[in-house]
Design a binder for these strands. Structure first.
Lengths: 181, 181
DNA sequence: TATCATTTTCAGAACGTTTTGAAAGGACTG
DNA sequence: CAGTCCTTTCAAAACGTTCTGAAAATGATA
C-alpha cells in the first residue's frame, strides 16, 4: 500500500524527533515512541509500538516504562481487554514543564549541591592561606558563586513560566518583548 | 603531596560538571576540559590538560578544538612560545548565551524545519480526504502547530534574555516575580 | 634545507549504551 | 489448575561513541 502524504509526515516527524532527542541525551527509541504516541489519535499498545517502529518487545517495554516514569505518557486499561495501552500528554506546555522539572531534579540539582559543597571546602581550606594560594581560593569562590547565582535565576524564571502556565505565557512573552523594547 | 581542600573542590567540581554534561548529550571529557579551563586562573596548554585530566594527546586536541568551535574557549598565542594556550569564557551569562545559540542552531532548527515541512505535506495530502482520514489530518496539523507555537515563544524568550543580558537579568527576574505575584 | 617543537589526524581499541529474544513471571479464564 | 495472553526481565549481542597513540602534517627556527 502506498504511503499517503499524511503518513509520510508522521514518520518523518518521528524520525527527526528521535534524532533531536538523541543529541540531548535521551534515547532515540524512547523519543520515537513518545512522538508516535503524541501524534496518535488514540492510545496504542505495546504491539502497535513494536510494529510501527520495528523494535523488539523488550525495548518497547523498557522504553514505555521509562516514559511513564518521566510522566510523559500514562498507562490505560480497557475493560475486557488484557492489553495495556499508552497515551501521551498532548499539552505541549505541560510536557515542557514535566521535562524541565525531571531534568532539574536529576541533572541540575546534583551539580548545584556539588558547588555548594565546593564552596564550603574552599571556606575551610582558605583559612591561613597566604599569597597566591589565597588568591586562587578567592578566584574559585567567585567562579562557583557565579554559577550558583545563574542557577538561581534560571530556577526563578522556570518556576515563573510554570506558574504563568499554558494560557498565560504567550501574552507574557509579548509583554516582555515590549518591556525590553 | 597531599591535596588541599581547594584542590579537592576543584577536582570534585570538574568530575560533576563532566557527569552532568554527559547526561545532556555532551561528551564528558569535553565538559571536564571546559570546567578545568573555567576554573584555571590562567590559560592552559594541551599538556596541562593531558596531565591534569589524564587523557591522551589526541583526545585533548580534538576536544579543545570542539570547544573552540562552540565558542566556549579561545586559543591564545604567546610571543616566543610555540605552544598554544586556551582560555575559557568566564562570564556565565555569555556562556549560557553561546550554548543556547549553538544548540538551537544545531538541534532545534532542524526539527522546526521538519515540522514546517510536515505541515506542508499534510496540507497537500488533505485535499479530498473524507471522514476519518480527514479528521486525522486535522489532528496532526493541530499537534504540529502546537509544537511550532511553543518553539516560537521559547525563541522570543531566549532572545529577550540574551538582549537583556548579564547585568539586566537579575532585576528582570525579580520584576517578573512580582508581575506573576 | 634540515631540525625541532607542536598540533592534528585517524585506524583500531576500549568502552558504555541500547537492543534483542527467549525465558520467567503475572494474571485472568474456562 | 491448565491454558492463554500479556508484560517484564536480563544475559548476550549489536551498536555507536570516545579515546588512544603512533604517524603525518605544520610551521617556526637555524
Amino acid at each position: 500500500m502506498p504511503e499517503t502524504p499524511v503518513e509520510a509526515a508522521k514518520s518523518l516527524y518521528i524520525r527527526r524527533w528521535g534524532e533531536m532527542a538523541a543529541s540531548w541525551g535521551i534515547s532515540r527509541t524512547m523519543a520515537e515512541i513518545h512522538a508516535l504516541l503524541y501524534l496518535a489519535s488514540e492510545p496504542l499498545c505495546t504491539d502497535d509500538v513494536m510494529e510501527q517502529l520495528a523494535v523488539s518487545r523488550g525495548s518497547a517495554s523498557m522504553n514505555l516504562r521509562e516514559l511513564v516514569n518521566w510522566g510523559l505518557i500514562r498507562r490505560i486499561h480497557r475493560r475486557g481487554d488484557r492489553k495495556e495501552y499508552f497515551d501521551a500528554e498532548r499539552d505541549v506546555w505541560q510536557m515542557f514543564d514535566t521535562i524541565v522539572r525531571e531534568r532539574r531534579r536529576r541533572e541540575v540539582q546534583p551539580i548545584v549541591e556539588t558547588i555548594e559543597r565546593c564552596l564550603k571546602m574552599i571556606g575551610e581550606g582558605k583559612r591561613g592561606l597566604r599569597g597566591q594560594a589565597g588568591k586562587n581560593a578567592e578566584a574559585y569562590k567567585r567562579r562557583f558563586t557565579d554559577i550558583l547565582d545563574f542557577c538561581e535565576i534560571m530556577n526563578t524564571l522556570f518556576n515563573l513560566m510554570s506558574k504563568t502556565g499554558r494560557s498565560g505565557l504567550k501574552p507574557l512573552a509579548a509583554t516582555l518583548g515590549k518591556l525590553a523594547g
